[in-house]
Design a protein around this nucleic acid. Structure first.
Lengths: 129, 129
DNA sequence: TCTACTGTAATAGATAACTAGTACAGAGGG
DNA sequence: CCCTCTGTACTAGTTATCTATTACAGTAGA
């Protein structure tokens, strides 16, 4: 229902949860005050250990995206949206920059690079989520 | 002189060596028959353990890019160029696809995505290597 | 109060990647 | 032969991540 986790992604699972949670807030899927799934529920859903989800949630608290209500759960904070909008741009920009640097070092022509990007953008274009 | 390694890259170090070696062959920096740096020399240069370089070289042998001359070193194989040209496209395409999928899931607008790509391309444009 | 949920914490174990150190066989130059 | 280079192999230890399990405190509803 919520996220998609790929264990063989290079990124740690908890990090994937953090990123996708931020993206959900930035994209308006999760709104201020809304409760997120409980640690155990999300862990079951993702077929992942509860500790891993708890760690992700702890990170999200540290980043001011979630706040805890003891005994009840965690909710999206008041100014989470603006934080996440900024974070989303930054996170994606960094990944793009890494790929482009590598492509540049490999002496792949920029036109060829643009072609790949456009091609892959077309490949994703139609679907929503 | 040769490569740039970033230990906190997500990618394993030996994998970075493999990729950059393939890119060097694809880009014409390394030619057929040319000797590559010895395990110990490259390890010293990259400030990395010799075992890590050895592992990368073993991968490159398995992929038919390098061949070993016992007691002398390793050299680029005859048909390494064409293999690496294909590998380069594939490796970069996969990374781009991963970023675009994530961006798509985050509901970032494609125009905004293109803007970031162009912006970062400009940022790299001038430099050679 | 009892029960079931919540987050949080702590411990131990598994696995992967990398480091550290040592050792061995082959090639080549003196 | 001796020395130095080459790749290769092995063991052990470190670190980070994730799993597995148990436990505890707070909240809420019957």
């Amino acid at each position: 229902m919520f996220f998609q986790i790929d264990p063989s992604n290079g990124l740690a699972i908890y990090d994937q949860v953090v990123r996708q949670m931020k993206f959900a807030v930035a994209g308006g899927v999760l709104r201020t005050g809304e409760m997120v799934p409980s640690v155990r529920e999300l862990a079951r859903e993702l077929a992942v250990n509860p500790n891993t989800v708890a760690r992700a949630y702890r990170c999200l608290q540290d980043d001011g995206v979630l706040e805890t209500f003891r005994g009840q759960g965690l909710a999206v904070t008041a100014n989470a949206r603006e934080r996440c909008l900024a974070d989303r741009l930054q996170l994606i920009r960094i990944r793009i920059q890494q790929v482009l640097v590598e492509a540049k070092q490999s002496r792949l022509a920029p036109q060829e690079l643009r072609a790949i990007v456009e091609e892959e953008l077309q490949g994703l274009g139609g679907r929503e989520e």
